[in-house]
Design a protein around this nucleic acid. Sequence first.
DNA 1: CGCGAATTTGATCGACATCAAGTACCGTGG
DNA 2: CCACGGTACTTGATGTCGATCAAATTCGCG
Lengths: 229, 229
Amino acid sequence: MLNHSLANPVARPHWGQMLPGGVESPEFLAGQPALVATEFSYGRNESIYGEGEPAEYVYQVIRGAVRSYKLLNDGRRQIGAFHLPGDLFGLESGSTHRLTAEAIVDTSLRMVKRRALEAAANSDVRIACTLWTMTAGELRHAEDHMLLLGRKTAAQRVATFLLEMDRRISTAGMFALPMGRGDIADYLGLTLETVSRTLSQLHGEGVLGFSGARQITLRNRPRLAAMDA
Amino acid sequence: MLNHSLANPVARPHWGQMLPGGVESPEFLAGQPALVATEFSYGRNESIYGEGEPAEYVYQVIRGAVRSYKLLNDGRRQIGAFHLPGDLFGLESGSTHRLTAEAIVDTSLRMVKRRALEAAANSDVRIACTLWTMTAGELRHAEDHMLLLGRKTAAQRVATFLLEMDRRISTAGMFALPMGRGDIADYLGLTLETVSRTLSQLHGEGVLGFSGARQITLRNRPRLAAMDA
DNA sequence: CGCGAATTTGATCGACATCAAGTACCGTGG
DNA sequence: CCACGGTACTTGATGTCGATCAAATTCGCG
């Protein structure tokens, strides 16, 4: 049961104000006096919650990575988002989760009871605003991702993905992907072979460097940004 | 300047409660004493707001239909949603619109100043809840649509579309589409030829009937629901 | 070092896109 | 009411990007 972290809920927590980045990174959950947070760990590929299950908690990634996805009845999968350290996920306005969440690698999460959060929102408009802002950030990402899935070419999808990971987890222009090619494919609406081929081609063109399949260095970010359209 | 309509903001406007349908149909904007609504009409293909423009109003469709979309720099378009009578749209948590909105046919809209709504939300948690619920409904739709765009076949996409329109605008199992094949294609991530061919095939199989290209009767809803996966 | 899983690479296929006519729809004006 | 014209839609022929099928390699962990 922890409840430390910063005391600034969100930069300017008032209606009409919002972070550009949406749900990424801000320490929303923390700094709420009345909210008790629990910490819990999940192993690689372990399920955190399933689609359709009651939404009892809201989560924040402390360490590790999480994928949220939907399945078609024949097993085709669409990953809607990856949740990385600092990210919040699992917040629902309705009563159930609409995607399944799984740990990609060993992962630690901070959990807060959703009902406690809602009770707090009822008495504190700043918290209510925070919940709205968080959902709006997820919506923004989903809108961008619909454009990617509906209209971008394979190369553009991979470029967008690399730039997203660069923005979210890179230090010194280098990052280690927590997820495999299959997860990337299911996020981008491609096959893992197409993802692999596209990455190989970018490597061949000198746009990126590898140190093992998942350690990536961006060597030509403007080129990627131009591809992205 | 009108402000009539029902006085029931939303079925049970409290945190933790939400309509299954999301943004469709509820008369959210109405029944808020302090909110002044303006009515305005737009002609076919007329722009309501553009991506990146300041978000000054929230809109409700009174009559007609609206498309919200994003463009790639080469003109490829992804329609994120169609807004039909009763629907709210244009609500942003940030300061600008992230999609462009255009009238598909001659359309009447009710408009409320976004700042007035935010002011109301600051003093009334029920309104704050309504804003969150609305954004969450849009997110739910976007999540479903990502699965469609990333993983469904052309036939499944068209089946999903027909069932969505049936749910939203059909009376007696029949409806008139306000949008053309090109709009449907850009919503489903296909070409207009593929949409046309798929509809023709469903017509040939007796799953649906036409009375003119846009007047559709569903003759075998279970079949469509089964295709949809 | 060795083993299973992940990734890469190659060959081929197929669903949907693209290119190209035809045809039907529908609002307008005679 | 009907002829007209432009747009929307349908249908056909062909092309292509990414999927699928099938082995190699490589990775990374024990």
